[in-house]
Design a protein around this nucleic acid. Sequence first.
DNA 1: CCTCCACCGGAACTTACGGAGT
DNA 2: ACTCCGTAAGTTCCGGTGGAGG
Length: 403
Amino acid sequence: MSGGEDIVFETLARISSSIFINREVLRPDYVPNTLPHREEQIRKLTEHLAPLLRRERPSNIFIYGLTGTGKTAVTKYVLRKVEEFGRSKGLTHFTFSYTNCRHDDTTYRVLANIVESLGHRVPFTGLSTAEVFRRFKRAVEASGKIVVAVLDEIDFLIKRAGDELLYRLTRINDELSKGKVSVIGITNDVRIMERLDPRVRSSLGEVEIVFPPYDALQLTDILKERAAKAFREGVLEEGVIEYCASIAAKEHGDARRALDLLRVAGEIAERAGDKRVTIAHVRIAREEIERDMVVDVVRTLPYHGKLVLLVTALAGGRFDSTGELYANYREVAMRLGIEPVTQRRVSDIVSELDMLGIVTAKIINRGRYGKTRQIILTVDPNTILKAFEDDPRIGWFIKHGRD
DNA sequence: CCTCCACCGGAACTTACGGAGT
DNA sequence: ACTCCGTAAGTTCCGGTGGAGG
């Protein structure tokens, strides 16, 4: 037992001293103290929140930008600073609430989350939405504060639940005698506004802030700054940062991707006991991230989603029409003795896989020969097949079932 | 310039299920 | 114990639609 303890301590000491000083600064939810190339967005957001200090309700704000362009980081950063500033002046009449609508994509859960951030408990199911809304109003009035509700990835909420909640949130100030509500909506879907009721659109779009993607040079700046805090001096081989930045720049300037690559590359070097992080480590990291993503998607997918993915991988990762995919899918489902779902449902599953980024589904028009979607895997088909090995039925099928 | 294919994608509905309030 | 409600997966029905071929 004492021997085991020694091994643990020795291992920890060895590992903790090799590569990283603090790897947390490379994690996607870390909010750094400086955000390079986002000065304009920070200034704009701060200006529009400034009325809080005069006890006025800020305008509703809409924030656009692709994934990994710093929307969430900038918002959290500014909110934190405003809060600090307010507290230093002894101001307590406003409060922020942050909800990620990817996880809470229903009216009920968003409201419940805001209410909880105001310090009241809401059961996670069982009440009617109307009841939760009443509790929300009561909570705001009881606090008497200006509540700024941040709805991150708001497109998930709109797609699943429509814009009714937003409509009510933007109009709730008329119904409140004490307290006020402002909304900050964050989205990476530029066209989501088109789906909204015109009244919601105009009131939510009072202020718009756009986050353009980073280019490779800007990504390099960001990585350098974080790397200085994350890694011990001199462990990064020449060109590693630039390599991560160039990969991420090709994928729509996603800073999260770049940071992930750098962190995982460091972890791989660490596990291997290497003294420096090299470009070879980054290449391995890229594969490992892809593998983890696939395993994760495969695990959480509904059953027929798995089948669709399997069929696509078996076909070499590509279908030129939904009809072709569906025919193959039916075939495999029958052979597994599973009742196939309708083509309509498969069409939705393809959209879901597209959103997860594991396939791209491009609409193509073939004139007389109709309009359909071309489905292409974004990852190696073998990675998918490997990820299915643990599944009892599908794993068996891959090994023995096909001829 | 119009047609018409092979789908796309919105909407309303069903079924099964699990939790809350009373 | 019973009712009400939300969620998730799936179905049925159906009105669009971009562009190659006539």
